[in-house]
Amino acid sequence: MAPPVHSEITLTVNGEEHTLLVDHRTTLLDALRERLDLTGTKKGCDQGQCGACTVLLDGRRAVSCLQLAVAAEGRTVTTVEGLADGDRLHPVQQAFLDLDGFQCGYCTPGQICSAVAVIEEHAAGWPSAVTADVRPEAGPPELTAEEIRERMSGNLCRCGAHVQIVRSVARAAGAEEAAV
């Protein structure tokens, strides 16, 4: 007997619960955009390669194009629409605005969600591929421009706005001296 190919699921997005019937093939990205009208999250490659669809899943960054919506049930989703506190932008959003951390803006929601997580990962002491010594006794790496570039490498920017993206992340992290 063929198994059911739809499920009713509840997604918690930006603090609100939404119950919807989804075809199991639906990605979280398509559920957000097409079912919940949260079009801030962008579809670029739809193959997990460009980072435009990056959201926070249980507080960690994830590409929503490779996340099945049905498998996200019970997890907490934060999209770019959920970062601001009312009219007060998230510090990462404000930094991108103040420093022109974008050109066309298409990759920006993914860049911003990713940057929010980068700052938290760095604060938690996570090393990166450019960290010279990953051993815990070496202590946490300084958030230099090189570290930011590596940690943000999953977000492509076709316009080439990287210089100001790095500055924006550094400012939001309070690391401008180390990074600029």
């Binding site: 960690r60 994830a62 590409v63 997580a117 940690r151």
Partner: peptide, 8 residues
């Protein structure tokens, strides 16, 4: 991979 793939 990338930071947002490694969490998954």
């Amino acid at each position: 991979a990338s930071g947002q793939l490694r969490t998954m």
